[in-house]
């Protein structure tokens, strides 16, 4: 029969993973987006392309390199060694790293667009009022770009919830640690437990639909209220 105890741990874990990933992504993605939006360096589009790579690369490529990078022969093994471990694969932290890489473009792009949308003018005005660069960023740029941050957070969160291939390759299917929603659904389908698969899959459908509606709403408001 359907046991709630089987279905809920992957859901809770997935939400934890997505929330952690989103926070990390906003912290890392904002300076990158700012630099991409403001810099006049010619090679910045090269950096933008690297950030956007996960849009195009199959998750198997990312998963394969992550498995090697997180393992004892890669930097992940070195980091794990500091805490007495051997590999960051098969850990929650490893999944956060993988998700950050995989969802980065979905966070950087909307924030960059928002930073570019308001142009140089507001920042120049603020500068004439003797606002420091730090003040200009926090009191002018960030508030003006708020819809971009909202879109970025929603997309980063949702994309992490929907992640499958990368987790399958570096997760190891450990309950409460790496067995996320999409992997649980896969397991249920493969073992012909379709009732459980349906419950989770329908939940994902509804969730995804709501996310897209939310993003479109924010987007429209951004266009109406923006320049």
């Amino acid at each position: 029969m359907l046991e709630g105890s089987d279905i809920w741990p992957p859901v809770r874990l997935t939400l934890q993973l997505a929330a952690t990933t989103t926070v990390v992504l906003l912290i890392l993605g904002t300076p990158i987006a700012w630099w991409l939006a403001r810099s006049r360096q010619r090679w910045k589009e090269g950096v933008a392309a690297v950030v956007a790579l996960p849009l195009v690369l199959p998750p198997t490529v990312i998963g394969f390199y992550l498995l090697l990078a997180l393992g004892p022969d890669g930097p992940g093994g070195w980091v794990a060694g500091l805490f007495g471990g051997r590999s960051l694969a098969f850990t929650f932290e490893g999944l956060v790293i993988g998700s950050v890489v995989y969802s980065m473009p979905f966070v950087v792009q909307p924030i960059r667009n928002a930073f570019e949308a308001f142009g140089d003018r507001p920042l120049e005005v603020a500068a004439t009022l003797r606002a420091t660069p730090w003040d200009r960023f926090w009191t002018v740029a960030v508030p003006l770009a708020r819809p971009g941050f909202l879109t970025a957070a929603v997309l980063g969160f949702a994309h992490t919830v929907g992640e499958f291939g990368v987790v399958l390759m570096i997760g190891g299917n450990i309950p409460d640690e790496t067995k996320v929603l999409s992997v649980a659904i896969y397991d249920y389908v493969e073992t012909l437990q379709w009732a459980q698969a349906h419950i989770l899959a329908v939940g994902m459908l509804v969730f995804s639909f709501l996310v897209i509606v939310a993003v479109m709403t924010v987007d429209r408001r951004l266009k109406r209220g923006g320049s």
């Binding site: 004892p72 098969f90 190891g172």
Partner: peptide, 15 residues
């Protein structure tokens, strides 16, 4: 996910 991936986990040293 199957025995091939299991081998890959061991062969890459992750397990």
């Amino acid at each position: 996910n199957n025995i091939a991936q299991t081998f890959q986990f061991v062969d890459s040293g992750n397990a």
